[in-house]
Design a protein around this nucleic acid. Structure first.
Length: 417
RNA sequence: CGGAGUAUGGUGUAACGGCUAGCAUACUCGCUUUGGGAGCGAGCAGUCUGGGUUCGAAUCCCAGUACUCCGACCA
């Protein structure tokens, strides 16, 4: 992609209506646009990051047998009434609307009911189980107060997966399989070492714990007690002597930290399937309850978390797996036709694999470097008279700081072109 | 939802109730410049909305709206 044609621009000044580092940084780099409090537009570079996160999540969910679907945003109130989650006194952050004829509708804030409703149609026999199905979709929550940029919005992108199992054992197997997949997702995003499976409140429908995936970061909204060494973590909301004993954790081993909840998995038991009348026949032809699990990953929240972790106010380095492009090619050819041609040749090659953003603007070096710092592509290749005199290009790995002059052939070989 | 604060060109800011609302940046044009946000000149562009007080309101008052922060909430 040519930066001269990219319609977004970086900006020098921080937006005054954002305090959160993630939103401020991403607005300054032109990755997102604030539409209103808690609602953000993903611009070309930001969308590429978001899509890369989705891709990784998809691959890992598919790998464990997840089947992707897409539920609807508009929701009929009937199914929510069956589980007693329609009334505002029970769930107060619904966005609701009406059809022309007055029929009430909900705007999806989560999708347990619709999944049970839609998937349940196909569950007749125990032979149909287990099922693991998911979607990546926008969620709408009427939060009383949006804050922290992408970390808590009113409209956000989430991956939610649901498992349907016949027995407790079958459920537990799926549950652990998903947990393992989650660890893989965070590892691929470059935050595996910071992300801990955390015991948390199981919610209002189960007496069990749920498991959150907390990425340690001071900007996080949750307080967790952790032992990074032993990979132990427990959310403050369930941090009691009784629970510590139940979980076999020693208080002295833990330190208080802040965490961003980047994922949450919890057992739903039979609450939703029973309420919506979804059962399966066992081998004697008798109806049996179905055990559910629910597994979420905040996709857009992860983009914010990455900005918090890998960014400063004026600089960013995206993990290679999600960077909008891997390489930022800085064209410093000026009016030198020879350098310009060499740069263009390299660009055309790297473009074949969609690896590169070229700064071909008629701008000075300082401006280009400053922009490249905040846009945050992990590899920087500088092309100028200086580098061409050495028969190559200056290649900087921004993570390690390693700088070397490589020839066109060397670079192409590195990327398998 | 309780409390506090803020609102001025695209962006960031300044202006005692009183001069043509200033500065920076961005943008447009011209010249110069070209490895860390260059220089000179010219130009475009603004007081959140609605009321009120006053000879006179960006400034004071009321209402609304939006945004931010603290708290509560977050299935």
């Amino acid at each position: 992609m040519r930066q001269s044609q990219l319609f977004t621009k970086t900006r020098f000044e921080a937006p005054k209506d954002e305090v959160a580092k993630n939103a401020s940084l991403l607005i300054r780099s032109g990755f997102i646009h604030k539409e209103m409090a808690g609602v953000y537009v993903f611009l070309p570079l930001g969308l590429r990051v978001l899509e890369n996160v989705k891709k990784i999540v998809r691959e890992e969910m598919n790998r464990i047998g997840g089947q992707e679907v897409m539920m609807t945003t508009l929701q009929p109130k009937e199914i929510w009434e069956k589980t007693n989650r329609w009334d505002d006194s029970v769930v107060d952050n619904w966005f609701k609307t009406k059809l022309k004829n007055g029929t009430e509708l909900g705007v999806g804030l989560t999708h347990e009911e619709p999944f049970v409703d839609a998937v349940g149609e196909f569950i007749q026999s125990y032979k149909d189980l287990p099922i693991l199905t998911y979607q990546i979709q926008n969620k709408f929550r009427n939060e009383l107060r949006a804050k922290n940029g992408l970390l808590r919005g009113r409209e956000f992108v989430m991956k939610d997966m649901y498992s349907f199992a016949r027995t407790e054992e079958e459920h537990n197997l799926l549950y652990e399989k998903v947990a393992e997949a989650y660890h893989k997702v965070y590892a691929r995003l470059g935050i595996g070492h910071l992300t801990l499976r955390t015991s948390a409140d199981g919610g209002i429908f189960t007496k069990k714990f749920s498991d959150e995936f907390q990425t340690l970061c001071d900007a996080g909204e949750d307080t967790v007690y952790v032992n990074e060494e032993k990979k132990i973590s427990i959310n403050k909301e369930v941090y009691t002597d009784e629970n510590l004993e139940k979980l076999n954790i020693k208080k002295e081993d833990l330190t208080e930290r802040r965490g961003i909840e980047v994922g949450n998995i919890f057992p739903l038991e039979t609450k939703y399937t029973e309420a919506l009348g979804v059962r399966c026949k066992n081998d004697k032809g008798e109806p049996e309850p179905i055990i559910m699990g629910c597994y979420g990953i905040g996709i857009s929240r992860l983009v914010g978390a990455l900005a918090e972790i890998f960014g400063t106010e004026t600089s960013m380095i995206w993990p290679e797996a999600v960077a909008p492009f891997k390489i930022h090619l800085i064209d410093l050819s000026g009016s030198d036709e020879g350098v310009k041609k060499a740069t263009e040749d390299l660009y055309q090659k790297l473009k074949e694999k969609d690896l590169v953003l070229i700064d071909d603007r008629d701008a000075r070096a300082g401006e280009k470097f400053a922009d490249a710092d905040i846009i945050g592509l992990p590899i920087r290749i500088i092309s100028s008279k200086k580098t061409l005199e050495k028969n190559g290009f200056e290649v900087v790995n921004r993570v390690t700081g390693k700088t070397e002059v490589l020839s066109l052939e060397d670079i192409l070989e590195t990327y398998g072109i």
